[in-house]
């Protein structure tokens, strides 16, 4: 299920793109975030023709888009790429949680002065993973073991394989596998309960 990520995006050849054009990391981050959010929102509203949102594909889409941007191209060295992916995965998690919280608030007619439909009109989703619970679980995990939390995030929200995750984090495959296995077991024991 992991999306193939290009191993080495080639920096653009033309001279103009070698210019440093003054974009800062913060801008990159917010730009990535905004793009992801925008794309995700359209999926959530069911406007897109393809039916299921594939967050991993989304990340890839944004990545490719940005890699084509002349102003960003020079920044996509392998280290940047790794950062980008980590950031995108994190952003994806945030977006999904925000959306889930907004939905819950709407249903309960909570603070945002919304029109309520009967509480019984709950839509029963197919998944038994509550994304807000998962989010909290990952937050707690990251206070215990930040690297393991990133492993979970990269694998679940960005869909990376063990090898790719290892590449992003700069550790061995075996480390990733250990981190993943223990983190997963712990999360499952917290959420499945």
């Amino acid at each position: 299920m992991s999306t193939p990520i290009p191993d080495n995006p080639r920096p653009a050849e033309s001279a103009s793109t070698r210019e440093v054009c003054g974009t800062t990391d913060a801008e990159v981050v917010s730009s990535v975030y905004a793009q992801l959010r925008c794309l995700a929102a359209s999926y959530f509203r069911n406007e897109a023709n393809s039916h299921t949102l594939q967050p991993t594909a989304l990340v890839h889409e944004v990545f490719v888009k940005m890699a084509k941007e002349p102003s960003f191209g020079s920044r996509f060295s392998p280290e940047r790429q790794a950062q980008f992916l980590g950031m995108a995965a994190h952003a994806m998690r945030q977006i999904l949680v925000d959306h889930a919280r907004a939905k819950k608030a709407v249903k309960r007619g909570g603070n945002n002065r919304r029109f309520t439909i009967s509480d019984t009109d709950e839509v029963c989703g197919g998944s038994s993973i509550d994304v807000t619970d998962l989010h909290e679980g990952i937050e707690r995990l990251s206070s215990m073991d930040p690297r393991a939390a990133r492993v979970i995030e990269l694998r679940f929200f960005a869909g990376l394989s063990i090898a790719q995750t290892a590449g992003v984090l700069g550790v061995s495959d075996w480390t990733v596998e250990q981190d993943w296995r223990s983190a997963r077991a712990w999360l499952a024991s917290q959420l499945g309960g």
């Binding site: 989703g125 197919g126 998944s127 993973i129």
Partner: peptide
């Protein structure tokens, strides 16, 4: 856990 990311998204 039962359910994949796609399921989560479906639910949302």
């Amino acid at each position: 856990l039962p359910g994949s990311l796609a399921d989560v998204v479906d639910g949302l």
